[in-house]
Write a protein that binds this DNA or RNA. Sequence first.
DNA 1: GTCTATAGCGGGATAGAC
DNA 2: GTCTATCCCGCTATAGAC
Lengths: 207, 207
Amino acid sequence: MSTDSTQAQPLSDKAEQILNGAMQEFLTHGYAGTSMDRVAATAGVSKATVYSHFGDKQGLFSALVQQLAQQKFARLFISPEQLPTHNLREVLENMANTMLDNLIHDSDYQAFIRLMIAESGRFPELAQTFALHLAKPGIETLTRQLSSFEELNLPDPEATARIWIGALVHYVIVQEMLQGKDIMPMERDRLVDAMLHLLSTNSKLNN
Amino acid sequence: MSTDSTQAQPLSDKAEQILNGAMQEFLTHGYAGTSMDRVAATAGVSKATVYSHFGDKQGLFSALVQQLAQQKFARLFISPEQLPTHNLREVLENMANTMLDNLIHDSDYQAFIRLMIAESGRFPELAQTFALHLAKPGIETLTRQLSSFEELNLPDPEATARIWIGALVHYVIVQEMLQGKDIMPMERDRLVDAMLHLLSTNSKLNN
DNA sequence: GTCTATAGCGGGATAGAC
DNA sequence: GTCTATCCCGCTATAGAC
């Protein structure tokens, strides 16, 4: 019973508690807007304990970002294995919709993206951590998937993957984060259809 | 000479000084990271003067964002009138490159985008102001331009415009802001070429 | 290791002279 | 209208008891 297994391994229970509290606070209030008092209160520990584990506020933030990038949000927001291609159009449509669903319905994920963009000027190394563990694998995975569809005849699958992801991420940023859906509504199906139309030209993928 | 025209109208000289100082500070340090003391110092006025003009910190921030959205950054980042279409491919290439140049070389514009995304959760009305005065006109302008190129045969020009802009903006966010260019480099010409390739399929626009 | 208590400073905001 | 001087609170960080 000493090494109880309700939680685990590299981090002490207290460290994990602290990181959980820190996640809530930093995702909600940003770096400068977060106080160490409230992190400690949310985590249910004293402020001194926070400092003894992470040194200072920057250290805590850095540890949090690396944990979030490498663990909590590392699952790609692209649908993983697809049913062997019945209909290529349906497969592509599913991929886009899965990615949009995951982004739109995960407010923590949106808050993390927002936080990383917000602090990218002041913490460039952490921004790069985000790029390395989230943006890069996402692009690589989609590049591989697009490459595997030979009917698409894509001359540059990686650049095409960036266009695809950029279109979807920008859609979520503008419509959801920047409140664009009220003043410039656009159904997501139109975006996905237009994307598929662009992909369909040099291929056998016709409506 | 009383109504001197070097500057103008709705704002006093002092108010403009203050907004200039506020712009530097908020763009550099974010909302929570900006202190009213430094805004006053940067603007060259006393703190009390700042408060007498704008009420409180939120009021100043709100006034600043609205000014930036409606004036300083309202010029669209898309090339305006194009040489009558010699070669459609060249025209589209120029449009994309002009937009990328404007985004990449205007660090104030990047900082403004970053700030709006950063504060969109805490100031949703201001985020919407940004969407209304910048994102929406940008999309509308590009939509009109794409619609005018009948050879492209686009079934949904507005959705296509969003894909185009999303691809370019996302490229700048990932490569420039998030420092992706070091760990996942991609020349901008590849992105633009891939975009033009996608557009070229149902049209006479061939390489 | 973790707590309570506090130091020391900078924040937003205002009073009152001019 | 604009300044100087100041209030008071909350912040990061630490000392010292346990």
